[in-house]
Simulated scan of single mutants.
Amino acid sequence: MPLTAEQSAALVPQDQRLAQLYAGSCKACHTVQDSLAPLTGNRTQWDPRWALGEDALLAAAIQGKGGMPAGGQCFECTPDDLKALIRFMAGRDGATK
């Protein structure tokens, strides 16, 4: 069963730096169903995207896609940060509630 927006909003990256980057940029859209962004931790929404490969997801994050601005408006994020944030949001990395 897919996560609700409330369950998604409760997820936080375990790494403190990533948690700060996530809270400052990604969380605003990736925990709001109406944003059309795939909800953090919702494998039902992320699995088809994940199937495209991490390189494709990173390129979309860097360039922007649909309503998502380039870099997700994370001005401090390095490509490695974006990779880690994508893994977290796609449910492929550790999260705490």
Rank of each mutant, 00 (worst) to 15 (best):
R49I: 14
G72W: 01
P13K: 02
A59P: 05
A10R: 05
Q63S: 12
P48W: 01
A60N: 09
M1Y: 10
Q14P: 02
A95I: 08
T40H: 04
P69H: 01
P48C: 06
K65S: 10
Q14R: 06
G91A: 09
F88M: 08
L36A: 14
L82F: 14
P38F: 13
P69E: 02
A60R: 05
H30P: 04
I62V: 07
Q14V: 08
A84S: 14
G64A: 00
A10M: 04
W46P: 12
E6I: 07
L18E: 09
L18M: 04
Q16F: 09
A95G: 14
M68C: 00
R49E: 05
E54C: 09
A56Y: 12
C77W: 07
T4Q: 02
L36N: 13
L39W: 11
A56E: 13
W50C: 11
R49T: 07
P48S: 05
A9N: 00
T31E: 06
L18H: 03
Q33Y: 06
S25K: 09
W46K: 12
A95Q: 13
Q33W: 03
T4N: 05
T78P: 11
I62E: 07
D55M: 11
D34Y: 07
P38K: 10
I62M: 04
A28G: 13
N42H: 08
T40L: 07
